[in-house]
Design a protein around this nucleic acid. Sequence first.
RNA 1: GGAGGGAUGGCCGAGCGGUCUAAGGCGGUGGUCUUGAAAACCACUGUACGCUAGUCGUACCGCGGGUUCAAAUCCUGCUCCCUCCGCCA
Length: 425
Amino acid sequence: MLDINFVRENIEAVIEKTRLRGLEIDLNGFAQLDAERKQLIGDIESLRHKRNVTSEEIARMKKAKSDATELVNDMRLVSARIKELDEKIKHCELTLREMLLFVPNIPNSSVPKGRSSDDNVEIRRVGKPPEFAFAPRPHWEIGTDLQILDFERGAKIAGSRFTLYWKMGARMERALINFMLDIHTHRHGYQEVLPPFITNSTSLVGTGNLPKFGEDLFKIEKTDYYLIPTAEVPVTNIYRDEILNAADLPIKLVAYTPCFRSEAGSWGKDTRGLIRQHQFNKVELVKFASPADSYIELESLTKDAEEILALLGLHYRVVTLCTGDMGFSSAKTHDIEVWLPGQNTFREISSCSNFEDFQARRANIKYRPSANAKLEFVHTLNGSALAVGRTLVAILENYQQEDGSVIVPDALRPHMDNIERITKS
RNA sequence: GGAGGGAUGGCCGAGCGGUCUAAGGCGGUGGUCUUGAAAACCACUGUACGCUAGUCGUACCGCGGGUUCAAAUCCUGCUCCCUCCGCCA
């Protein structure tokens, strides 16, 4: 959410910046409603002042045993009027807040302008694509032949976009989770947390998933519970309505969670394989930083995510998303895309974003910059490190052999009983 | 699921419906003292909003309703926490 004071003074700029994202927002009536609210607050406060003063007077008169009936009758009217104004103000504020909740974050000035993913800017490319003496196959063929991925039974148990992992498939998924958590906790200094996999709607408003993107979520009927679409939601909300110590910043957390997405609106997209599932595993990095440091922290967070790919020997590139391709809450986003030889393309495996104070304002997460200074909102950041299912996909496709087996990357072997190769068994 | 108890400022904790909407303590900040530190003493110490910008005003005592001229205080619904019983991984 943007600062209401900022929006008030920069309505045109806000509309303009939103247009850079390819969105049109409706702020008609905002200024008028905002002015009305201000007027009403002035009115109600003077009435309340009158009531407070007169109440004391009534108390004095009663103590002196004199008749206060007239004042009491006056105040009866004043109180009724206060109640009336209070309802009007509440209505104004609700409407204003509703408007603001639908306004996306303003892209940082360093973000390239553009309309779609075609305008994203590649900032580096690391490693080399593997060379094959045969035509590399897509992971769904490799996994099915090795009998470690079972798409048919996944669909039977739950439906399309659900997959059953068998044996070394399940084993590798679990190894990847542990591998990633170990690297981030031991080498990068993140604290591990294991949050609830379900949150309430307030938490989802805090991160910006609600109220606008409810269709993307699985909601539990007749409750206020939602399956989390990413660990970002519960982990960012750890500190909702709290004041952090400046000396503790940046706070760096890492969490493994499954993620659940309805994928409404992506019918027909990536229907084969593990790429786009209703349920997938992810290891997520979350940072709470001071505003002065947040862009440094975005770069280091991205590097932390990249290191997983580097350690696994996977070829990848990093792109900065253009204004038209960024998520609603983000001020700047780097995507990491891994090379998938079976599909001859780069695919997103991580998305690292700085939300600046957008989420912190929604979730009310503050800190005191220095003793006696005013409270300020922190900056929040997060990034996948990595999407586990897609990492497994990348390993299957990049380490596939002509005989259908798959070599286990060196770095992963200690987490897999030092197995070197997955073969059909 | 049943019965009972509770929620107050960064933390602990007091608060007869009307001498301020908050005692007291801890913590924090500044100062005195000290070579320095500790201790001691003194002072200050919540958030948000408003304007006539002040030794100003208004709101906030889990959240929402209600009663009242007036609610931290009374009534009510909800949320969360604690204790006991039952069930259960």
